[in-house]
């Protein structure tokens, strides 16, 4: 969340090209994971019945845009009009939730999302399944996705239940450094003049980042955390009065990912410092009359728990 015109959507849409491909069941509408039968859709479950394994193909991780003005039928799926008209058949046409399964669902201007769509997303995010009961159709399919939202907080507050569903919350502000700003303008100009050449120029960096993410993904399962650091995480959340346990669980997971991204097998105090603000920013109890930014409060609490050099204080 943050200032407009700071490249929020551009960054999210750039994600798709960085993610290493995943294994999918060939021909499956929902891109089911061949190695996880528990989460299969009904077709895959039926196909697997009795067979050892299903045909597999590599495919990209979906990054799906949910634009403002999307209708409910497109989000959750609906009757296939063509088949209804030409063959008189009642068939299900999957929507955006189906397409986003095992990937990312991106909502720009998330704080302006229609409220019935928010209700729908909350239900699906909680269960990991999309259950459609409309126009005589009755379908249930897997819909597990990472929700990515962006918007300008000045447009309105985000509904608390939805806010809570987001693991991390980054605050983006306008860059104040002139040289950096000039560089932004110049890069944008270069891109517009010749998009292909621009891409090529940055391909080595993209490749490196892609490889780094791939390595980190393989490593993250083996990253460990010391008991002492777990205590620190719990202490931090306690000190800040964070409700529930999503705060500490998110810090733990994010800190592991951060360690893996840096190629380490154990979480360091510096990882905790790196992720704590974004993991907790939206979980602090809000006092509308105070000026103090949530980020500053978290930093202050962090200072008492982990010192600046990363060692436990």
């Amino acid at each position: 969340m943050g200032h407009r015109g700071t490249g929020k959507s551009t960054a999210v849409r750039a994600l798709a090209e960085l993610l290493p491909p995943i294994r999918k069941v060939k021909g499956c509408l929902y891109g089911c994971d061949p190695d996880n039968a528990a989460e299969h859709c009904s077709e895959c479950a039926a196909r697997l019945n009795g067979r050892a394994r299903l045909p597999v193909q590599l495919g990209p991780v979906p990054v799906v845009d949910l634009p403002l003005g999307a209708t409910e039928d497109r989000v959750c799926g609906t009757l296939d009009i063509e088949r209804a008209l030409t063959r008189g058949e009642k068939a299900f046409e999957p929507g955006l939730l189906a397409r986003a399964n095992r990937g990312f669902l991106y909502i720009d201007e998330v704080n302006l999302l229609e409220h019935y769509l928010v209700d729908l997303l909350l239900d699906v995010a909680a269960s990991g399944r999309n259950i459609v009961e409309r126009e005589g159709i009755s379908v249930s399919h897997p819909a597990r996705f990472v929700l990515v939202g962006s918007g300008n907080p000045e447009e309105g507050e985000l509904r608390p239940q939805l806010l809570d569903r987001f693991g991390l919350h980054c605050r983006i502000t306008t860059i104040q450094d002139i040289e950096a700003r000039v560089e932004i303008v110049k890069r944008r100009e270069r891109f517009e003049r010749d998009p292909a050449a621009f891409r090529q120029e940055w391909e080595p960096e993209q490749d490196e980042l892609r490889a780094r993410i791939g390595r980190a993904r393989r490593l993250v399962r083996d990253v460990t955390v010391s008991d002492e650091l777990l205590v620190r995480i719990a202490e931090l959340c306690l000190r800040l009065g964070v409700d529930g346990h999503r705060g500490e669980l998110t810090i733990l997971r994010a800190a592991k990912a951060q360690a893996a991204l840096e190629g380490r097998r154990d979480v360091a105090p510096a990882d905790l410092r790196r992720v704590a603000v974004m993991a907790l920013r939206h979980r602090l109890r809000r006092d509308p009359l105070t000026e103090i930014d949530a980020g500053a409060r978290i930093e202050k609490a962090l200072d008492r728990i982990v010192d600046r050099n990363g060692a436990a204080a």
């Binding site: 200032h3 015109g5 490249g7 306008t174 002139i178 700003r181 000039v182 932004i184 303008v185 100009e189």
Partner: peptide
């Protein structure tokens, strides 16, 4: 010219313009 890019960015900064679309448009 390079200093002209800088001049426009400095003006945007001085005016407290939000985000970076403004400067891209300004150029």
């Amino acid at each position: 010219a390079p200093e002209q890019y800088r001049e426009l960015s400095a003006a945007a900064l001085r005016l407290g313009v939000e985000g970076h679309r403004a400067e891209i448009f300004a150029v």
